[in-house]
């Protein structure tokens, strides 16, 4: 096989099947992945959760993961957050001509490993090759199906006054990792992405709490964006204890240098959970048992006041508002 992906690999001929077989199929192998045009799947035991997500990230590889791992986690976590067990995934690749096959194998390895951990089968796929410069390395789209746990009903509209707000770990790690990996601002720090498949953790939350009101995985806009979304969708206020929000010191240092707010940096392996206050302790204890949840903490509560807003208690004991998300993260001097 060639060392680099070439346009001919997307042509649908012999080279295409060779690439698909050598790089993807042999790593993803499972009962449902065949050479036919579509996967035939057994009917689900309950309602299905169905979602899709596209992944572009530069650089494609970063401390703690790569775009392959990310593409599995993203879709698996979206399904998990609906209280559904991830079962099947499809994946579509758009690969830039000239992309090293070895790197593609590294991506496929990460996908296979992560899928195995998450308990999903990759049952269908597609590969296209775009000309040099038309895409940046490789873009991946994954689509997934999950089976909803009986009785699970989390929704962004279901936050209620009295709920505790829990985050499953320290915030902003993925965003900070990517920022550092791009090397644009000359900052060095030991930060790894939190990118992780969260079904194990999510299902354990349902084990200890019958009535999970909201379950979200914080992604692009970070935990802060999730909190604003939930406050808006549920028409409630959220009171955040600023000092309780777990932030890795190095992430805080990077944010300090660039004038960024860690709550708005991307996460790829963090759950934001709203449960009745009386269940909060059990949920946090359960989260801490997961390898991805050692820094889990209650960070606030839901109030009937200030609907749509996220209010923070400050160091001086006064109140302030977490400003709504502002879009593109740019370092600032003022």
């Amino acid at each position: 096989m060639e060392e680099k992906v070439m346009l001919v690999h997307g042509g649908g001929g012999k080279q295409t099947s060779e690439l698909i077989h050598e790089v993807f199929a042999k790593r993803f192998r499972n009962l449902y992945l065949t050479e036919d045009d579509a996967a035939i799947l057994p009917p689900p035991a309950s309602n299905i959760a169905f979602t899709t997500d596209g992944f572009i990230v530069s650089p494609w590889k970063f401390p703690g993961g790569n775009i392959g791992k990310l593409s599995i986690c993203g879709t698996v976590n979206d399904i998990s957050c609906m209280g559904a067990r991830p079962k099947y995934l499809s994946c579509a690749f758009v690969i830039e001509e000239g992309f090293p096959v070895k790197s593609l194998e590294e991506i496929a390895d990460a996908m296979a490993l992560t899928a195995r951990e998450a308990g999903v089968s990759i049952v269908a796929g597609d590969t296209k090759v775009a000309g040099h410069g038309q895409v940046d390395g490789v873009f991946i789209t994954t689509t997934g199906i999950g089976e909803r746990l009986p009785g699970a009903h989390p929704s962004g509209k279901s936050a209620r006054p009295g709920d505790a707000v829990i985050v499953s770990g320290d915030v902003g790690r993925h965003g900070c990792t990517i920022l550092l990996a791009r090397g644009e601002y000359g900052i060095d720090a030991e930060v790894t992405s939190d990118c992780a498949p969260l079904w194990g953790m999510a299902s354990s939350v349902f084990d200890v709490c019958r009535d999970v009101h909201v379950l979200r995985d914080a992604t692009r806009g970070g935990v802060g964006t999730v909190l604003h979304e939930i406050a808006g969708q549920s028409g409630v206020g959220i009171r955040l204890d600023a000092s309780a929000v777990p932030v890795d010191p190095a992430v805080a240092g990077v944010c300090g240098m660039l004038g960024l707010e860690p709550l708005y940096l991307a996460c790829e392996g963090r759950l934001v959970i709203f449960v009745p206050k009386e269940d909060a302790e059990a949920v946090v204890a359960e989260l801490k048992k997961s390898p991805y949840g050692e820094n889990a903490a209650v960070i606030g509560e839901v109030t009937p006041d200030e609907p749509g807003r996220v209010v923070m208690t400050t160091e001086l004991g006064t109140q302030t508002v977490l400003p709504p998300p502002g879009g593109e993260l740019l370092p600032r001097i003022c």
């Binding site: 200030e306 209010v311 006064t318 109140q319 508002v321 400003p323 709504p324 502002g326 003022c334």
Partner: peptide, 16 residues
């Protein structure tokens, strides 16, 4: 600017 007076009032307004 994020630190402009109006931006600060808009973002934090009402509560403080």
């Amino acid at each position: 600017s994020q630190e402009g007076t109006c931006a600060a009032y808009y973002q934090y307004g009402g509560v403080v």
